[in-house]
Computed example of a mutant assay.
Amino acid sequence: MASFIVSLTYTAPIDKVDALLEDHVAWLREQHAAGHLLGWGRKVPREGGILLAKGESRDAVAALAAQDPFVVGGVAEIEVIEWAHGFLDDSIAGLAG
C-alpha cells in the first residue's frame, strides 16, 4: 500500500459546498471504515480540504476520490499526490501502512 494526500479545492460558492456537506462526511466515514482514509480536514482559509489516504495506486485513489459527493456534485476538484515518507513520528506511524 502506498500513501497519498488528496487535495480538494472548492470550485463553487460555499453555500453549494455546504449543501453537500452531510453526504460528504458520510462518505468520508464510510471510506475510513473500509480502510481507505486515515484522516481528513479543512484547509484554512476554507477553500477546500485534505484527505490522507492509502491505496494500491495513484489511479485507484483518484478513482475513489472521484466518488466523493463534493466531486460528483461538481463543487470540488481533486489532486492526488503520492508521497514516500522519509520519517514518521510514532504518533502517526499508521500512515506507513
Rank of each mutant, 00 (worst) to 15 (best):
M1F: 09
A2G: 15
A2Q: 15
S3F: 12
S3Q: 10
I5V: 13
I5H: 03
I5A: 11
S7H: 10
S7F: 07
S7G: 02
L8K: 02
L8M: 13
L8R: 03
T9I: 09
T9W: 10
Y10N: 09
A12P: 00
P13R: 14
I14F: 13
D15C: 05
K16Q: 11
V17F: 03
V17Q: 02
V17P: 01
V17E: 03
A19I: 09
L20A: 00
L20R: 00
L21H: 06
E22A: 15
E22S: 14
E22G: 11
D23Y: 00
H24K: 01
H24W: 00
V25I: 11
V25T: 12
V25W: 02
A26R: 13
W27G: 03
W27F: 12
L28E: 09
L28M: 11
R29C: 07
Q31W: 06
A33H: 06
A33W: 04
A33Q: 10
A33L: 04
A33T: 12
A34M: 02
A34K: 07
A34N: 09
G35K: 03
H36M: 05
L38N: 08
G39V: 13
W40C: 09
W40A: 15
G41M: 07
R42G: 07
R42Y: 08
K43W: 04
K43R: 14
V44T: 07
P45I: 08
R46Y: 05
R46Q: 08
G48H: 04
G48N: 06
G49D: 02
L51E: 06
L51R: 01
L52Y: 09
L52Q: 04
A53F: 01
A53R: 00
A53I: 03
K54S: 05
G55W: 03
G55I: 09
E56K: 14
E56D: 15
S57M: 05
S57P: 02
R58D: 11
R58S: 13
A60G: 09
A60Y: 01
A60S: 14
V61F: 00
V61D: 02
A63Q: 09
A63D: 15
A63L: 05
L64I: 06
A65C: 12
A66G: 10
A66M: 07
Q67G: 03
D68R: 00
D68N: 01
D68H: 00
P69N: 08
P69G: 07
F70D: 04
V71F: 08
V71L: 09
V71S: 06
G74C: 10
G74P: 08
V75Y: 01
A76T: 03
A76N: 01
E77N: 11
E77V: 10
I78P: 02
E79M: 08
E79I: 08
V80G: 01
V80A: 01
V80D: 01
E82H: 06
W83N: 06
G86S: 15
L88A: 14
L88P: 04
D89H: 15
D89N: 12
S91N: 12
S91E: 13
S91V: 14
I92E: 07
I92W: 10
I92A: 12
A93H: 09
A93Q: 12
A93F: 10
L95G: 08
A96V: 03
